[in-house]
Amino acid sequence: MASPPDQDVDPFAAVETLRAALDQAGIVLPSLAVDPGSPAVALIDLGRVRAPVAVRLAAALQRGAAA
């Protein structure tokens, strides 16, 4: 599946896509949101997480990279 050009990605849709993928991996990032201070570059704020959540996120990424 080809990735769309960066400037065409809706940041709100990106947040929901990421939230759904994280949910499937059993990971919750409570502060996940569009950064309102960056409308020109559409930054996504992932927020802060506890160490166990960071480890689960890393493991999910590693499983995905190995697939």
Rank of each mutant, 00 (worst) to 15 (best):
A13V: 05
R48D: 14
I44D: 01
L43F: 06
R50W: 00
T17E: 14
D8H: 06
A58M: 09
P11N: 03
Q7P: 13
G64S: 13
A40I: 15
A42R: 05
A25I: 04
S3M: 11
A13F: 02
L29N: 05
P39F: 02
P30L: 10
A42D: 08
S38F: 01
A13I: 13
V34C: 01
I27C: 14
A51T: 09
A20Y: 02
M1A: 06
G47F: 05
V28K: 09
G64A: 10
R19K: 10
V49Y: 00
D23V: 04
V55D: 12
G64N: 14
V55K: 12
R56V: 03
G26M: 05
A65Y: 02
L18F: 06
R56I: 04
A25D: 04
L46E: 02
D23W: 00
A66F: 03
V41P: 00
A54V: 12
L61Y: 00
E16W: 02
A2F: 06
R63N: 10
A14T: 12
L46M: 15
P36Q: 03
A58V: 14
A33L: 04
L18S: 10
G26S: 08
A25N: 03
G26Q: 10
Q7C: 12
G64K: 12
A51F: 03
V49I: 05
D10T: 08
T17M: 13
L32F: 01
A13R: 05
A40N: 14
Q24L: 09
P11W: 00
S31C: 12
A21M: 09
V28I: 13
A58L: 15
P36T: 07
D6G: 06
R63Q: 07
D23T: 11
A14H: 05
V28F: 12
A58R: 08
V9I: 12
P36K: 02
A21N: 08
P4A: 10
P5F: 00
D6M: 11
R48F: 10
V9D: 02
A33T: 08
S38N: 08
P4T: 06
D10P: 05
D35V: 09
G64I: 01
R48W: 11
L61E: 04
D23M: 03
I44N: 04
L32V: 07
R56T: 13
D10N: 12
L57R: 03
A25C: 08
D45C: 14
T17V: 07
G37H: 07
A65Q: 10
I27A: 08
G47H: 15
D35L: 04
D8E: 11
R50C: 04
A59M: 13
L22K: 02
D35P: 00
V34L: 00
A40H: 11
P39E: 07
S31W: 10
A60C: 07
G37C: 09
A21I: 04
A54F: 06
A42K: 08
V55N: 07
L43Q: 06
R50A: 15
L32C: 03
A21Q: 13
P36H: 01
P5M: 09
E16L: 05
A13P: 00
I44A: 04
P30F: 01
A33N: 15
A67C: 13
P4Y: 03
V55P: 07
A21E: 06
P36S: 04
A25T: 01
P4G: 07
P5K: 13
V15C: 07
A20W: 02
P52R: 12
V49R: 09
A14V: 08
